[in-house]
Structures are given as C-alpha cells and as structure tokens.
C-alpha cells in the first residue's frame, strides 16, 4: 500500500532566515506504519517535523489524525502525540493547511516537503506515533545542514513505527 502526500511548508521561524548562512531544501521521507498483531487495532496518529539542536520546532511536516470526524472529535487525542502537541500542535489553529491529513493504513507512506531557509547547524527530523489503546514511539534522525548537501538516512522503529527513510537536498 502506498500513498503520497505532497505538502508545502510555511516557513515558521523568521529569525532563522538570515542571508549568508541559511539554505532552503527539499525533503522526501517515507514513514512505515507497521502491521501489528493486537486484539484491538486503531490506525496511529503520526506527526513529523524538523527541530533545531535546542529541540525547538523549525517546521511542521505532517500530522495524520482523524481529521474527518464530526465536531473535530479527532482532535481530542492529538495530545497523545505528546511531544508534537507540546512543541507545535497546542499553539496552532487546527487543522493546519497542507500539514493535517487523515490517518494512514499499514504500509509505507511518503512525504514531500520544502524546508524553509535554515541556518547551517545541527537539526533533527522527528517522527512520533501514538495509537489508541496502543503504544507511542518517537524517532529522531539527526542531520547537519549546510549548502549543497545531500542527506540520506534511515531508522527503524521498534513498536509503533516501521522503517523511516529521509532524503534531503539543501539548495
């Protein structure tokens, strides 16, 4: 099963944009929702974002939850993606244009995004998953940002997330 979400990023932090040492970039990632042998299964809520070395959020990339439930009922459980909720969700008007999307079935899902201009330095690509009557998992992939750099990385979750691949090209 494969689905594709194309998303545009709103540059969030104006202070990160300084002319000499900051670069924008293109990000492509895949996030695998693993098949789990459990009695009661609900699709996980998943958020993906980029954060700075001090762990503050630089850009939201995706948040997949029950966007289509009536009366915004799906938002009730967004707090369970707890790091994302703390860093970003609770400060936003929901749904977030181009970022919010429906939950995904078991399988690999791709994510395309344009990264805002970011200063050279260390960053993390973060994926957090939380499942109703299930567990929670957070994966952080570190990367260094510089001009004309290609970043290819991957990581594999242990419970709630499968394989995560990350490809970024800085401009």
């Amino acid at each position: 099963m494969k689905s594709k979400t194309t998303q545009k990023l709103i540059p969030l932090v104006a202070t990160l944009v300084s002319s000499a040492t900051s670069y924008a970039g293109d990000l492509t990632a895949t996030i695998e929702v693993p098949r789990l042998d459990v009695a009661e299964y609900h699709r996980p809520y998943i958020a993906a974002w980029v954060e700075a070395a001090d762990r503050s959020i630089v850009a939201d990339l995706a948040v997949w939850y029950d966007v289509e439930m009536p009366n915004k009922e799906g938002e009730t459980w967004l707090k369970d993606i707890r790091q994302w909720w703390r860093k970003s969700g609770r400060n936003k008007e929901l749904p977030i244009d181009g970022i919010s999307g429906p939950t995904k079935p078991v399988g690999e899902h791709s994510l395309d995004a344009q990264l805002p201009k970011m200063n050279t330095g260390s960053y993390y690509f973060v994926v957090e998953a939380s499942r109703e009557v299930g567990g929670r998992e957070l994966i952080r992939i570190p990367f260094d940002w510089a001009e004309n750099t290609t970043i290819k990385q991957s990581a594999t979750g242990e419970r709630e997330l499968g394989k995560i691949t990350l490809n970024i090209q800085s401009k």
Binding site: N71, K72, E73, G74, E75, T76, W77, L78, K79, R82, W85, G89, R90
Partner: peptide, 8 residues
C-alpha cells in the same frame, strides 16, 4: 491535565 480538542 493536558487536553486537546474542543469542549473537553
């Protein structure tokens, strides 16, 4: 003590 969503 931490909630999201409306009218909780």
């Amino acid at each position: 003590s931490t909630l999201s969503g409306e009218d909780q």
